[in-house]
Simulated scan of single mutants.
Amino acid sequence: MADHIVNDDYFFGAFADSWWDSDSRMRGLASFQTPRFRYFDRFLGEWAGKQVLDVGCGGGFTTEFLCERGADVAGIDPSPRLIAAARRHAEQTGKRIAYTVGRAEELPYDAGRFDVVTCVDVLEHVRDPARTVGEIARVLKPGGLFLYDTINRTMRSRLVMIWIPEYLTRIVPRGAHSWQDFITPKEMRRYLADAGLVPADKMRGLSILGRRRDGRLIFLRTPDVSATYMSVARRLGDGVEE
């Protein structure tokens, strides 16, 4: 399928050329994979052979992580520069990943195509999160799983997800997040319900405790969802029960 060409005005596209560098400003994003999927794995069992779509794949951290686990992975992102970087790195490392330029609100895939859709650190960046969740539900198979994380819109999240990382420690590029675009759990539950997705677990927090000397971040999973939170939802239909 041909790429849906869009203007590359996406904030993270500016970091495409250095995405995989050892000193990349995006290196902290790769740190999320282990704590996220240590949680998500409980709902999957085996990744091998699963048809997986990563929405908002950026330069390919999550897609490559899941490809290494044996999944048949596709990735989509609105930035042509990021998709080019992801393709280039996949070729260099011998990974077969189907990358497409496109927006989350209009996924260019057939209905019911994927066993799993991941959307991590993305929903707070899309123009229309409700429509995005609806599109994700559309491309999931009945019984398929939606794995997500996002950021709550609270005073605490303004402090710990914007002011400290972007202005104080500068471990995140300034302008990466807009507090107004953060999503409350109540809003997220409404998006899921409207899309026909049923929560498979309660929402869990993931707190950043600090950064290692090599640039990797340190995390703690917590019941506190006042900053970031993650969870899993399942698509109903065709005999799938809640």
Rank of each mutant, 00 (worst) to 15 (best):
M1S: 11
A2H: 12
V6I: 13
N7Q: 14
N7R: 15
D8Q: 09
Y10P: 08
A14D: 09
A14E: 08
A16H: 09
A16C: 11
D17E: 13
D21L: 15
D23K: 13
D23H: 12
L29I: 11
A30W: 11
A30K: 11
F32N: 14
Q33C: 11
T34F: 15
P35K: 06
P35T: 04
R36N: 13
F40C: 08
F40D: 01
F40L: 04
F43P: 06
L44C: 14
L44Y: 14
G45Y: 13
V52W: 00
V52I: 08
D54M: 02
V55Y: 07
V55N: 05
V55R: 02
G56N: 03
G56Y: 05
G56M: 08
G58F: 12
G59T: 03
G60D: 02
G60V: 01
T62V: 08
E64I: 05
D72W: 02
V73R: 00
A74K: 00
I76K: 04
P80S: 02
P80M: 07
L82Y: 03
L82N: 01
A86D: 02
G94L: 06
Y99L: 08
Y99T: 01
T100H: 10
G102L: 13
A104L: 10
E106L: 07
E106Q: 06
L107K: 02
D110G: 14
D115M: 11
C119F: 00
D121T: 06
L123I: 09
L123E: 04
E124T: 08
H125M: 10
H125N: 03
V126H: 05
G134C: 01
E135D: 01
E135F: 02
A137T: 05
G143W: 06
L145A: 11
F146P: 04
F146S: 12
L147T: 00
Y148C: 04
D149N: 10
I151P: 09
N152T: 06
R153T: 04
R153E: 04
M155F: 15
R156C: 09
R156P: 02
S157N: 12
S157A: 12
R158T: 08
V160P: 02
M161Q: 03
I162W: 01
I164M: 10
E166L: 12
L168E: 09
R170T: 13
G175W: 07
G175N: 05
A176Q: 06
H177Q: 08
H177C: 10
F182D: 00
I183S: 07
K186Q: 07
R190C: 15
R190G: 15
Y191W: 08
L192A: 07
L192Q: 08
L192W: 10
A193W: 15
A193H: 15
A195D: 13
A195K: 10
A195S: 14
A195I: 13
A200P: 01
K202S: 03
G205V: 12
L206N: 07
L206P: 06
S207K: 03
G210E: 09
G210R: 06
R211K: 04
R213C: 13
G215Q: 12
L217K: 03
F219A: 01
R221E: 13
P223D: 13
A227D: 03
A227S: 05
A233E: 05
A233N: 04
R234L: 15
R235Q: 09
G237E: 07
E242Q: 11
